[in-house]
Design a protein around this nucleic acid. Structure first.
Lengths: 226, 226
DNA sequence: CAAGCATAGTGTGCTTTTGACACTTTGTCG
DNA sequence: CGACAAAGTGTCAAAAGCACACTATGCTTG
């Protein structure tokens, strides 16, 4: 006897993006009830023929025009009363994107899309503030022992940009020399022997993240803690 | 327009237990189709009126007689083809219990219950081998930077027992003196000024885990890495 | 074209943490 | 009372972490 439960399943995505000053999160303005007109995380119902992760990617593209991103499962929120539409369980994902690579386009159930600094958020629909809080916590935890975050930067970046990213995620300042020593010791960055163009002051060297080196180090149980 | 999807939601629990020699996992023998007669993780459908975590606790008690345990969400498995009954998404949890405190009783949809060493598992129903693999990996990862695992021991325990636990979870030997130095430096153990009874050789001091001390340390950003 | 300025880039010394290592103590059992 | 099984204990050397300040470079502006 299999009970046919009226539980419905959704996905929600917390997309983190970085601009020059802030760590931001992508929100959409809802074009449908409930919470019509409220800001919310992009997301929606999982279709029977797609995996839950595929649903997250689909909704992200449909509602915000964002595609091909680093996406990781965050947590499943399964409280009974979390959605006024009835019993809805949501699987939350979080994503990291380079903000400038991903121009936003509102569509489907979204009337508008935008980036919001974490410290300056509007009121959110459903329990999305809670989901976002968990996501930010996870991001901070994760960045400490895994070199994620390269997805937030352009392909070629300077060590100062990378340090800025870590400082924004961890919300504290880091010592420049110690940071450089450590991050270079990880052995997963390639010095491109190029320098920044069009900057108003001394140009910095450019580096890129090397996925192969990262995999090699990872297999050997290397520790990426900062 | 809300699509009423035929997706159904289950929970599955990976319960780790420790006996004197091995790290074990709790399995039930299924009393219903599909996979009737196969060994599987305890679990079942989420009811509309309970939270997902409550469902996990309920199933654990119903099927195996295990209650009041440390339970943490592991991962949600949402592939389309993972269940022969149709579209079933499962939220997996993992639990840590002191094996001797939890006598097992098979009931409801389970014909039998038992503890199995991680290295000596029967074939499992559904994708439960995959779920178990993810759980073991998470446990290893977690134990390294959080002092979980006390749930696996009796309330009063010796440092050797604790070390044995870590060695079984991490699957490597640790140096006795270094281990003691580190674990005592964490400042979350209380020396009970008691010694073991009824042991065939020199009796060891007993300690207990102090939750208040743990919380204090946690709030100050203390690092529990071993 | 010189001075200013904004950011890049670089090394050292001290402190703390880690990790390897072996013997003595205690209590039980036969 | 001797053998045994596990408990308990300290040192030293290497590595890692952390605090700390100046010089280099290249553009801007007066």
């Amino acid at each position: 006897m299999i009970p046919i439960t009226p539980i419905r399943l959704t996905v929600d995505c917390v997309v983190f993006g970085l601009d020059d000053t802030d760590l931001k999160v992508l929100l959409i303005r809802r074009g449908i009830e409930p919470f019509l007109g409220s800001w919310a995380l992009p997301g929606g119902f999982v279709l029977p023929a797609e995996s839950v992760e595929d649903a997250a990617r689909r909704e992200l593209e449909e509602e915000a025009g964002v595609r091909e991103v680093f996406l990781e499962q965050l947590f499943t929120f399964g409280e009974v009363e979390r959605d006024p539409r009835g019993r809805v369980v949501t699987v939350a994902y979080y994503a990291l994107v380079n903000l400038h690579d991903h121009p936003l386009t509102a569509a489907t159930d979204a009337d508008d899309v935008g980036w919001f600094a974490l410290e300056d958020l509007p009121a959110l629909a459903f329990d999305h503030d809670e989901i976002l809080r968990v996501a930010a916590e996870r991001l901070r935890g994760k960045v400490r022992y895994q070199p994620i975050g390269f997805e937030l930067l352009p392909e070629k970046f300077t060590l100062s940009q990378l340090q800025g990213l870590y400082e924004k995620v961890l919300d504290r300042t880091l010592d420049k020399r110690n940071f450089r020593r450590k991050v270079l010791a990880m052995g997963i960055l390639i010095d491109l022997d190029e320098i920044q163009q069009d900057v108003a002051h001394r140009a910095a060297r450019l580096y890129r993240f090397d996925e192969n080196l990262y995999r090699q180090r990872t297999e050997r149980g290397f520790n990426f803690e900062l």
